[in-house]
Design a protein around this nucleic acid. Sequence first.
DNA 1: CGGTGTAGGTATATCGTTTTCCTTCCGGGG
DNA 2: CCCCGGAAGGAAAACGATATACCTACACCG
Lengths: 346, 346
Amino acid sequence: MGARRSGGRPTISDVAALAGVSVSAVSKVVNNKGSIAEPTRRRVLDAVGELQWSPSAAAVALRGARTRAIGMVSRRPPDLLTSDPHFTVLISGIERELAPVDYGLLLHIVGEQEDAERRAYRRLAEERRVDGVILTESLVSDTRFDLLRGLGLPAVLIGTPWREDPVPVVRAPHQERGVTEAVEHLAALGHRRVAYVLGPEDRVHTGFRRRVLEEAALRHGLSPVLLQVSDFTAEAAAVATEESLSLAGRPTAILYANDMMAIAGINAARRRGLEVPRDLSVVGHDDLPLGALVQPRLTTVGQDLVGLGRAAALRLVAELDGTAAEVPAIAPPRLVVRESTAAPGA
Amino acid sequence: MGARRSGGRPTISDVAALAGVSVSAVSKVVNNKGSIAEPTRRRVLDAVGELQWSPSAAAVALRGARTRAIGMVSRRPPDLLTSDPHFTVLISGIERELAPVDYGLLLHIVGEQEDAERRAYRRLAEERRVDGVILTESLVSDTRFDLLRGLGLPAVLIGTPWREDPVPVVRAPHQERGVTEAVEHLAALGHRRVAYVLGPEDRVHTGFRRRVLEEAALRHGLSPVLLQVSDFTAEAAAVATEESLSLAGRPTAILYANDMMAIAGINAARRRGLEVPRDLSVVGHDDLPLGALVQPRLTTVGQDLVGLGRAAALRLVAELDGTAAEVPAIAPPRLVVRESTAAPGA
DNA sequence: CGGTGTAGGTATATCGTTTTCCTTCCGGGG
DNA sequence: CCCCGGAAGGAAAACGATATACCTACACCG
């Protein structure tokens, strides 16, 4: 008691005064550096407890040490965030690991212009707001890796990079398995003409899935796969569906790049008088909780998004703290069969 | 050129040196304080541009000034985040306003224990990580207001506070309109027994909606409303639905506290062999994009979540920057009639 | 017995800004 | 001619924590 200024929060000097030692002693105790005798240590720790002191993030950051925050910059238009929960699920996984180790997550949603994104990263780095970033939505010819290297900002990518791993990457094992299983499933049901509504072409995973799909289709003797490219919106998915269905020799099954698109597709089919799965089989992607609730319950390629988020967070924190990462296993993508697929013309 | 240390990012002294003035002059120029002659001002600004200098967030924060970040703490279990997009939509609205004024959003998702939440707010404030916070999920006997006042952390609440406005509040005008319209709609269709699957009782809005609902029911001569209380999960909604439907004199319509619950309810009804809307009318709440995609398309009480998020962000930023807030109008809740409601026994 | 560790601390420079005085300089009123 | 006041800008003290350099005992060793 005593010397402490009444006003704001306690500082390290208040702690030192209360414990009857110097501020350096306090610093050493709380950071486990130098050597401090046990009784002194105790007194300091008691004082810390009594004053409820915690170091000022600003001061620590200024001193050049860690900020204990990691950043994420998203370039989607804000309203797309709301319709595709993919991103949210990822964040949920990330937070699950960040919270216990007292890291914060600083979110920046910028418009679609690339330079806004670059500015965001630059500020994050230069103003030392975060210690590192997590990257998602890997793009073909993604320029973020170079930018971040230039800024000296550690990063982890969730997904597949467009070229040799420029930063640590977390991704599920057996990437191809989910889509492959979906094709097998459809082939086994007796489908021959299958369409795929892909996401935007600049996504690395779009190309990846296309290849996997083509190979699997070939292997199972499916007739040439129809490909439609669109953005991630429900509207685009509906349009692509309409187009597929009005083709001569229309497909009896369609795979979609995510669950929301699949649901939009089911609706589009319905508007044309087609019943799912009777007249058309539909397969989604991601296995969001939602898929189990709609009618018909959605057959979909499950992805361990939470696991990916967790792994990315752990990986990054380990790198920042210089500890070894023990990353939990990420489940490989698997087909979840529900009710939106059936034998054609059944 | 010249005096600048080659290493890291430029500091204010580098700028000063380049412009041939003192650091204080630079500070004054960039913050529009003191008085600096026009030619000097120019030189400084040029130097800033040339060096691409921006002030270190850490140093500014340490100095006691702003951090240019606002915080949000959510106490939901991380996986609930993923199933109910409500929160995400709000965030999207918030970011829409934050991004243009270069504020960041620091997210903390803590477990369900109350003390974890308190710790999170405390750290946010004491470590000066954020300048203010946005509160959602207003609870009965919410202790956060006192906590935040104690911490001196500015806050804005989205929703209705449990007692006299303790902090600035943003909420939609004509709060009661949506639910009232829903009841009117059902009454007009000829429904007499209507159930409501409420959210948790500790939510302020649960009580509010209950009152509005009872009044409206009374006004339209509906028979006593059946109330079921549950948490926000799809499972809980399914269970509540089952219970309602197995009552003697089962309801012909059910209102739900949110869209995901409504969809789960539709499914539960279906499992009992009831068709929506033929055998049961269902009304959701929030009008998430999803509702327009499911089958049957969901009749729901629309809420301007994005508007609420935007308004909250603007309000808080205005308060922090000491400027006047020109908050855009928030749309009142309105009933959106789609296909999940119909006359009973039709 | 002098030298040399070493445990246990303390004093202090430093990080990059902002802000509060100061110091000049210059014009004008008395 | 003297003094006053405002404009323009500089010097230096914070802000809070950390790391380094630096003391002081005391023990141990040859």
